[in-house]
Design a protein around this nucleic acid. Sequence first.
DNA 1: CGCAAACTTGATGTTGCTCAAGCTAGGTGG
DNA 2: CCACCTAGCTTGAGCAACATCAAGTTTGCG
Lengths: 237, 237
Amino acid sequence: MSLQLAAAAHATTGYHAMAMCQGLERQAASRVVAVSSRQVLAPGQTLFAEGDTTENVYEVVSGIVKLYKLLPDGRRQVTGFLSAGHLMGLVYRGFYVYTAEAVTDVIVCRYPRARFESLIDEVPGFARRLLAIHSDELRVAQDQMLLLGRKTATERVASFLEMMAEMQGAETPSDDIHVPMSRQDIADYLGLTIETISRTLTKFDADGIIERRKCDRIRVRNADRLADLASGDMDEV
Amino acid sequence: MSLQLAAAAHATTGYHAMAMCQGLERQAASRVVAVSSRQVLAPGQTLFAEGDTTENVYEVVSGIVKLYKLLPDGRRQVTGFLSAGHLMGLVYRGFYVYTAEAVTDVIVCRYPRARFESLIDEVPGFARRLLAIHSDELRVAQDQMLLLGRKTATERVASFLEMMAEMQGAETPSDDIHVPMSRQDIADYLGLTIETISRTLTKFDADGIIERRKCDRIRVRNADRLADLASGDMDEV
DNA sequence: CGCAAACTTGATGTTGCTCAAGCTAGGTGG
DNA sequence: CCACCTAGCTTGAGCAACATCAAGTTTGCG
């Protein structure tokens, strides 16, 4: 895809500045956009699977993608939910370490690996940008290890709700947060079971911390309380 | 420190090629080494703490370092044990996200952040090298999430023993593996308690999978069995 | 309206935690 | 050199948090 064509394609979709290009000069950003193309996914569709050779790097343009790993007997760990602006498959070499699957309708931007890699050396500031993205992912991963290793079920669910609120910009704190993923996805993300997720949400509702509108829509009624629970500060109520 | 002085300093210690310089040209590697200096740590000594501003990047030269995060009430999650060649504090900007503490006697190589960062743009191939290191750390973090979220105590301890064996090069598979960290460190790494670690090792010993020599020395007697347990393949014995 | 999938709720079970007591090894001083 | 002391490890008994198993209930879709 030529630079012009790519620019045109993105212009028609109303999508101009890839998150990956944040902080890059106009000329540099153009070169990154030039090697990209778009792909649409329906809910449940797999973008790539754990163990596949890394042929592309992807950026989420819209929607939510879940990443997960499996054990031989089917136990699953969701390692992350990605919203617009996040990268997947940025593995330096070899194989994807997780499966990526669309949770909602998703649009991703695809960068072929070979061309993507050459940009690292050619585009000024691009490597720094990737390092920044990577180090942020690592920070999130560390937090998740703390959650999985040491937090209680209550604290995990509270942390999850905080994350979802933040993911949605959390304009008005009293606004509904949208939870598009299934209870099973949440459970596999938090290292719990669907029943524990359900019961914990019921308890939060009873305690006036949240209000359950529909199963995929939750209103936070006491954000402070939720934050305390999430951080593990609270002497467990 | 001038390039010559740095080279001399490292020559006298018998330490020449930093792991960070793997794959860099001789000239490029020299420039990286030039900004570095060494630091020695006794067991239990803290290199930097979670929340400190990132002033240096460190590379482990010898010994073992543990990284950990704390919850307000003191619960602890060890996010990694690092051996020679691994990097710490490679956060793109801001604050360390974990505390780094020496487990054994440790020598680290220190790179001041400001000078380190300028190398990213100046030294050819350096950024790629850092990306490769980063993406490997991310892979390890994903594996650890799977362990913490979905593996049983038995599987976790087996995974840990495998990791320790690999960390030591695992020349002869029948060799002793050295476990320099305390039971508390292991427990906080695996999201378990010291009692569970102890009991699980006792069980492995009784089952002929390992032989406990001393509390910090373990011989693997049945590596295949251990590998099966670690991967979660086994229908639990 | 009816069906299926997803969610909630309840009763019971099990893994790993807590609490408590011995044991062991390594270091210290008499 | 050896007895003592302490920190860390092991072992045991009971318990709690969360999982499992089993109904119900809601939601969304054809």
